[in-house]
């Protein structure tokens, strides 16, 4: 059933965010520490576990992957509610800092992305990664023929 997938996603998110809050509390930070990242790891683990035990049904996949396909529209909605006016009106200090940071981080991405890249083929399973991309871009109907059975 589809709701099982949505519920699985919700439970992973709730547990992850809770763990992030607990981690923040333990570290004495007034913020959630990696809650979404922890939730992602939980969901990855759940997927592996369901696949191994043969319980990864069509409905479960549909329920989770639907929200994956909604990712980009949600990001567009997110962009529509940024405080762009304040960002652009911040003055020279804001401009210099933001531009400098973004340039520096792109440079660092180029450098770090190359570390340990000597293996001939970096991607472990090209088809699987590609299918993931199609789901997230909203171009693939969940459960269409793909690598992940």
């Amino acid at each position: 059933m589809t709701i099982f997938g949505v519920a699985l996603l919700s439970i992973c998110t709730l547990i992850g965010v809770f763990l992030g809050d607990v981690l923040g509390l333990l570290l004495g930070v007034k913020a959630n520490v990696g809650g979404v990242g922890l939730a992602m790891m939980l969901l990855i683990a759940a997927r592996v576990w369901l696949q191994k035990s043969g319980a990864l049904s069509h409905g479960v996949k549909l329920g989770v992957e639907f929200w994956g396909t909604m990712y980009i529209p949600i990001v567009v909605a997110m962009a529509s509610q940024q405080n762009v006016v304040a960002a652009l009106r911040g003055g020279p200090l804001v401009l210099v800092t933001a531009i400098g940071t973004v340039i520096a981080c792109f440079g660092a991405t180029a450098l770090i992305g190359r570390i340990g890249r000597e293996r001939p083929s970096d991607v472990h399973d090209e088809a699987e990664v590609e299918r993931g991309g199609e789901i997230i871009s909203g171009d693939l109907v969940p459960d269409a023929p793909g690598k992940k059975a």
Binding site: L9, S10, C12, T13, G16, V17, G35, V36, A39, M40, M41, L43, I44, R47, V48, K61, V64, E65, F66, W67, G68, M70, Y71, I74, V75, V76, A77, M78, A79, S80, Q81, V123, H124, D125, E128, V129, R131, G132, G133, I135, I136
Partner: peptide, 21 residues
């Protein structure tokens, strides 16, 4: 586009992660 649904959708994308990668 708020934090709740944004994070929910981000977590959902993890379903497409290649674990080995």
């Amino acid at each position: 586009g708020g934090a709740m649904l944004r994070d929910f959708a981000i977590v959902a994308t993890a379903f497409e992660v290649d674990v080995v990668e």
